[in-house]
Design a protein around this nucleic acid. Sequence first.
DNA 1: CGGGAGAAATTGTCAGACAAGTACACATAC
DNA 2: GTATGTGTACTTGTCTGACAATTTCTCCCG
Lengths: 227, 227
Amino acid sequence: MAGRVEALSIVDALALELRRRVFAGELTHEDALTEAEVSRAYEVARPTAKAAIEKLVGEGLLQRSAHKTARVPHLGPEDVRDIYRTRAHLESVVLRALAETRTAPAAAAAANAEIAAMTEADPLTVVEPDMRFHTALVDALGSPRTSRMFSSLVSEVRLCMVQVQGKQLLTTASIAAEHQQILDAVLAGDGEAAVEAITRHLGRARERLVAALGGSPGPEATLPEPA
Amino acid sequence: MAGRVEALSIVDALALELRRRVFAGELTHEDALTEAEVSRAYEVARPTAKAAIEKLVGEGLLQRSAHKTARVPHLGPEDVRDIYRTRAHLESVVLRALAETRTAPAAAAAANAEIAAMTEADPLTVVEPDMRFHTALVDALGSPRTSRMFSSLVSEVRLCMVQVQGKQLLTTASIAAEHQQILDAVLAGDGEAAVEAITRHLGRARERLVAALGGSPGPEATLPEPA
DNA sequence: CGGGAGAAATTGTCAGACAAGTACACATAC
DNA sequence: GTATGTGTACTTGTCTGACAATTTCTCCCG
């Protein structure tokens, strides 16, 4: 992989910066993100700020309806459940396929080694290698569409993380151990075991997140209600 | 369901019109879609045309790299395989869940009745109720994320259809019969049978599409190569 | 205290302009 | 004749500035 240079347009660079701020928790649902404000803060024209904002809206990282200012979406317990159930479904399909060929990507193992080696720090620090682990698994399937779908889910997962920022939900050791179980099952060619492991892994994370957001425990099968 | 009125912005209306033209096959990979041309044809300002084009690019219905004119993407055999495999994965997950509660949405049955009642006509006519059938199943899961993902896949499926426009691939009767098998399996609570039926259904459609595009038959497990 | 008119803020759209990049044809050198 | 370089036309990227339409807030009046 030779390092590719890439010229970023101003809009793209601005979108990148806004994305970073959202994932860093510098922008919350409370902050109104007006076009004029962005254009002033970054010294760009308003159409440029508008384009960047609309790009993030298209990605689902911001919400905006006609004539209203853009905001980071507020994720409730139903959203977290939907995100994590969809994740579990997608990743289960992927693991079943990977197990058939006993394919465990090196990138996933490397990301998990990083997690295992982490000494307790900022809870948000573990998010990056964690997402890298899961993304590596999905990418190993070699399906551009599946990878694209998953990456949009990852964005929403990171939004969840930001909203419960500061609360350490699980220890890095237990996360790494669960990941290892998944890798082992895939390498053993046991798809069902891998699916079970990922379902447990994600199910536990989901319920902790929901609890942290103040949602009811919800045993299973709670359908989202219209907000 | 009362008919809701909705004020469309010019950009949205223009995006809708362009989308229609893409799905109708009026725009192909050969046609360059310049901003100036769109702005002239619809009598809007160039920034408006630009915004509409970029919206479709974000949806994947158009492709464009920096400083180049937008085009409808060209889907090769590898793309068709990826789209249909991803579809099969997603719909399988959905059917398994629906079978557990024996939930078969009325909208799906209605759409299939339409297909069954169709007398041979324009091959593209069957696409709309067909997509409605599959979308109804996915929507019945009640997961906004899953539905959103699936709708982006549906867009690409319709792109495929347009590219092989005019060639009747399957009879409406056989399509309706296969759909009915799926519904029956779900109602019987037999998830595995439903998964098998959808896999056959989509697998057959996939290979016919690939053949129509001039791709090699490909038994299975052919990974997409970098273009 | 409730409701409505008015003002401020924000977004939607436009016009016109220039810079920057790409693509293609053409001319030149070896 | 091939390869390299140049130049021009076309297209997109961004900006300034402006006005219309809509929302939202405020405040006054009944």
